[in-house]
Simulated assay, not measured.
Amino acid sequence: MLLVYVLLFAWANVPAPAVADTTTVYKCVAANGSVIYQGTPCAHGQREQTMQLQDDGPVSSPLPTPVDDTPRMATTPPPAPAKPPSMPPAPMYRCIRATDNKPYVSSNGNPQPYYAPLAMTGIVPTPIGQNYGGRVSPNAAMIASHYTLMQDTCQPMTPQDTCTTLRDEYDENEKKLSRTFKSDQPPLLQRESELLAQLQQC
């Protein structure tokens, strides 16, 4: 401990080099001989010695990265393009044939009326030619008197039923294509294209 005091006392008598940043240390000796080192001047009645210590300053660090303080406009990602609404498939109708009550599917909800023999309706049990023993050919008057105007009834199908029906028709068309000679395929290929276009809306 005495050696430390001696060294500090010796450093106090050595002129400190002129430096830009220094710290003053005060050595204060009280009346009872106790020694105190502090950074402020000694109290009244104490012997005072000073020593200048060089301040090494903060540890050097790499140059800071320049900060771009230019105000920037807040950027938001562009909105995603709106998905086009899916269009329902073209309406289809489930119809009942007036002559025999058999169901069929049609794209026309109001099919044209047609003439049918009364024999097909159950009103006349035999065809026209048989009524005359097959000896005469039916003429306009005979047809007018033995035929009646018929009208099929149709109901619109739901989009789900329409898509199911289109898929069934497509499968049936593909089966026919696989069993048909190449020369007979053009109408089936045309129908295949039509069905694929309609199924894109399902």
Score class of each variant (00 low, 15 high):
62 P>V: 08
62 P>M: 04
62 P>D: 10
62 P>A: 11
63 L>D: 13
65 T>P: 01
65 T>F: 10
66 P>F: 06
67 V>R: 11
67 V>F: 10
68 D>V: 05
68 D>N: 07
70 T>M: 05
71 P>N: 05
71 P>W: 00
71 P>V: 03
72 R>Y: 09
74 A>G: 07
76 T>K: 14
76 T>C: 12
79 P>E: 14
80 A>P: 03
80 A>F: 07
84 P>Q: 12
86 S>L: 15
87 M>T: 15
87 M>K: 15
89 P>K: 08
89 P>I: 00
91 P>L: 11
92 M>L: 08
92 M>N: 00
93 Y>Q: 00
94 R>M: 15
95 C>P: 06
95 C>M: 10
95 C>Y: 02
96 I>P: 05
98 A>V: 06
98 A>P: 04
98 A>K: 02
100 D>W: 14
101 N>Y: 04
102 K>W: 04
103 P>R: 00
105 V>K: 07
105 V>Q: 08
105 V>T: 12
105 V>E: 08
105 V>I: 15
106 S>I: 04
107 S>V: 14
107 S>G: 13
108 N>K: 13
108 N>V: 14
110 N>Q: 11
112 Q>D: 14
115 Y>K: 13
115 Y>G: 11
115 Y>S: 14
116 A>Y: 07
116 A>F: 04
118 L>F: 01
119 A>P: 01
120 M>D: 13
120 M>H: 11
120 M>Y: 11
121 T>S: 09
122 G>M: 01
122 G>F: 07
124 V>G: 02
124 V>E: 10
125 P>C: 03
127 P>F: 04
127 P>W: 06
129 G>K: 14
130 Q>H: 01
130 Q>P: 00
131 N>E: 13
131 N>C: 13
132 Y>G: 07
136 V>H: 06
137 S>R: 08
139 N>E: 05
139 N>A: 00
141 A>P: 01
142 M>L: 12
143 I>R: 11
145 S>C: 09
146 H>L: 03
146 H>A: 07
146 H>R: 03
146 H>K: 06
147 Y>M: 00
147 Y>R: 08
148 T>A: 13
149 L>G: 03
149 L>E: 06
149 L>C: 07
149 L>D: 00
150 M>R: 11
150 M>L: 15
151 Q>E: 13
155 Q>R: 07
155 Q>T: 11
156 P>W: 03
156 P>A: 10
157 M>S: 03
158 T>W: 09
158 T>P: 09
160 Q>S: 04
160 Q>A: 11
161 D>E: 14
162 T>G: 09
162 T>W: 04
163 C>M: 07
163 C>R: 08
163 C>H: 05
164 T>P: 02
164 T>G: 10
166 L>T: 03
167 R>M: 03
167 R>C: 03
